[in-house]
Amino acid sequence: MNMRMVLLAAALAGAVLAGGCISSAPQEVEFDDGIYTVKSHSLTLRQHVRLTRRTVDFNKNGFLQAQIEAVNLGRKDVQFQYRFRWLNEQKMLIPAATAIWKPVSVGARSTEYFTSTAPTTDARDFFMEVRFVHDSTRW
């Protein structure tokens, strides 16, 4: 009985360990009709990276371009991943081969710009997803 409990506890701890270190839940910041919608926490990610400005424009080919300005308020570099997702006029997600997570490191007390171009000319809106991940240090 005791051995069973030990094995169960070890399995549980292993699952928690693996799950906690592989990835974190995504944090999303959405912009719709002039209003920021933050799905978790605030516009300041992890209390260090503040998203300060959002710029949108159509380029000469009719593709929507988006830029997010972020400032690292902390005294340490912050690493995370981001990706842009695009929505058409009906707010339907536009699939894109290039919608992949990109790693980024924002230097201490510095400003970084995240830019992306819509995959089609149908895109009318976007949102940027951010997630914090780190490689496991257990080998």
């Binding site: 549980l12 360990l17 690493q79 240090t137």
Partner: peptide, 15 residues
């Protein structure tokens, strides 16, 4: 084991 598990999640990346 639980302490180890929690520590693993809190430890900052060593990258």
């Amino acid at each position: 084991l639980c302490v180890l598990a929690l520590a693993g999640c809190v430890t900052p990346p060593r990258g």
